[in-house]
Nucleic acid binder design. Structure first.
Length: 469
DNA sequence: CGCGTTGGTCGTATGACCAACGCGGTGCTATACT
């Protein structure tokens, strides 16, 4: 059967999107792959169709519970019943039952933490694993080193399972991050399938302000003018909340805030409201984003610069999935990078903690305890650990410096990003609205959002309702 | 870095003002207890 026929038969699509066929063919040929496809190009199809064409189960490692739930629901909605997510959403007895009948599932979603659970491992050992998938694989290189060490144990898992056929999926990774991911996964024979990170329909802007206050005022002005919907990213939960209040009082836009301290239910609700077009603006921290597949996001503003360009590209990539023109705007006020410098510094464990007496370790925050436990089990000497922490710190500072360079460059912003990801700069002829350095005008992204400002015009409303516009 | 909180002083109001200080973001899971 030709792959197109299989695509039609199993998933109902007529044609492949760029990259998908190549990825599936590679897996069907029994080769491991490292796949980099831009956001919104249907990475799910890659492992789903491969799974249908192979005998055995597909195990998918996913970083977020909400992502897993979404995928499971979507697959179920399309009629696939043999799909499950083993995670803490399951009640203990549900989990036991699910593990007992694990062999009945074709697609099994797991977090790296759950994968390391001995019962789960033992049960997986009894199955035939056709394909091992790492979704959002950049998490290995970012979160793994910082606060989710189980991401770093995926390599040992692969070894333990005699190196199952593996597919690594991400949207953004520099060569260096790719190398780190492959190293962590103990994957040295992966076929690289790399597509450009460039999203031509997203115009790039930076704006400098002298002070925090001016930046704040500038943001309100932008939000008032820009065509919504949009996302504004902050590096502080408090500021995200504060700004949402400000937008509510200063504009007629519908808005909400979103960050990691909120209850899972409120987070889900906000995300749904945004997806359904009930909100114009989301004021969020980096917690908001993965798994958002809203097509018509018109702008992404960053109130603070992110810690690295990978995060920036990932976050602005949520704009313009529909291919329509959209804007990515990075704001800066003097000294902004200090905040990121502080956060980056906090990430790598303080080497002094390695000397902490065992009885005091218990009083540390949970994340630090985990990272310490991870290093203790790694068998590395203290000197080697110290060296690794130092390298990590250095890496982060370099990344931040590159991010700062983006703000400061006088050349094309898109070219800067592409160079960072090791790509050739795109052809200018094809990109009239590229970035502010090349003459793109922010006003092209303005629109009217003030409709809610008007008092409801009942006569017109009823007229439209019964007679049509 | 900039912001909010805290605690001191002033000097007699239950505030006004200032300096010093600390903090900032991302998520999984297990298990005990109210």
């Amino acid at each position: 059967m030709r792959l197109e026929e299989a695509l039609k038969k199993y998933l109902g699509y007529e044609t492949f999107r760029p990259g998908q066929k190549e990825v599936i063919e590679t897996a069907l040929a029994g080769k491991n792959s490292f796949v980099m496809l831009p956001t919104g190009t249907g990475k799910t199809v890659c492992y789903q169709l491969t799974g249908y064409l192979l005998e055995g189960a597909v195990v998918i490692i996913s970083p977020l519970l909400s992502l897993m739930q979404d995928q499971v629901e979507r697959m179920k909605a399309y009629g696939e019943k043999r799909v499950i997510a083993i995670n803490s959403f399951l009640a203990p007895q549900e989990k036991v039952a699910a593990l007992r009948r694990l062999d009945q599932y074709k697609f099994i979603f797991l977090s790296p933490e759950m994968l390391m659970n001995d019962t789960v491992k033992g049960r997986l050992k009894q199955l035939k694993i056709a394909l091992f998938v790492i979704d959002e694989a950049h998490c290995i290189s970012q979160w793994g080193h910082d606060f989710r060490p189980d991401y770093l144990a995926l390599g040992d898992f692969r070894a333990d399972f005699e190196y199952p056929l593996t597919m690594v999926l991400t949207a953004t990774a520099t060569e260096r991050v790719r190398q780190d991911i492959l190293l962590q996964l103990q994957l040295n024979d992966a076929e690289s399938i790399i597509y450009s990170v460039d999203r031509p329909n997203i115009a790039l802007f930076t704006r400098r302000y002298a002070t925090f206050k001016e930046k704040k005022a500038g943001l309100v002005e932008l939000v008032r003018e820009l065509k919504s919907p949009g996302i504004i990213y902050f590096s502080s939960k408090r500021l995200a909340e504060e700004f949402q209040q400000l937008i509510r009082s200063e504009t007629a836009l519908e808005s909400a805030y979103y960050h990691g301290d909120m209850q899972a239910e409120s987070r889900m609700m906000i995300q749904q409201q945004f997806s359904r077009g009930q909100l114009d603006v989301i004021c969020a921290t980096s917690a908001f984003g993965m798994g958002i597949d809203k097509a018509d996001i018109r702008y992404v503003i960053h109130f603070h610069l992110p810690g690295d360009l990978e995060a920036y590209v990932q976050e602005i990539g949520r704009a313009g999935r529909d291919g329509e023109k959209s804007a990515a705007i990075l704001l800066y006020a003097n000294g902004d990078e200090m905040l990121q410098r502080q956060l980056a510094d906090k990430d790598a464990l303080d080497p002094a903690l390695l000397e902490l007496p065992a009885e005091l370790v218990g009083s540390l925050p949970e994340t630090e305890q985990r990272m310490l436990a991870h290093y203790a089990e790694s068998g590395l000497s203290k000197g080697a650990i110290r060296k690794r922490l130092e390298e990590r710190r250095h890496w982060k500072q370099q990344n931040l410096a590159a991010m700062k360079g983006y703000l400061e460059t006088e050349g094309c912003l898109r070219a800067y990003i592409l160079r960072y990801f090791g790509e050739e700069a795109a052809d200018k002829e094809q990109q009239p609205d590229c970035c502010d350095r090349d003459g793109a005008e922010i006003t092209h992204y303005f629109g009217t959002n003030e409709r809610r400002n008007e008092q409801p015009d009942w006569v017109r409303y009823l007229d439209e309702l019964f007679v049509g516009p």
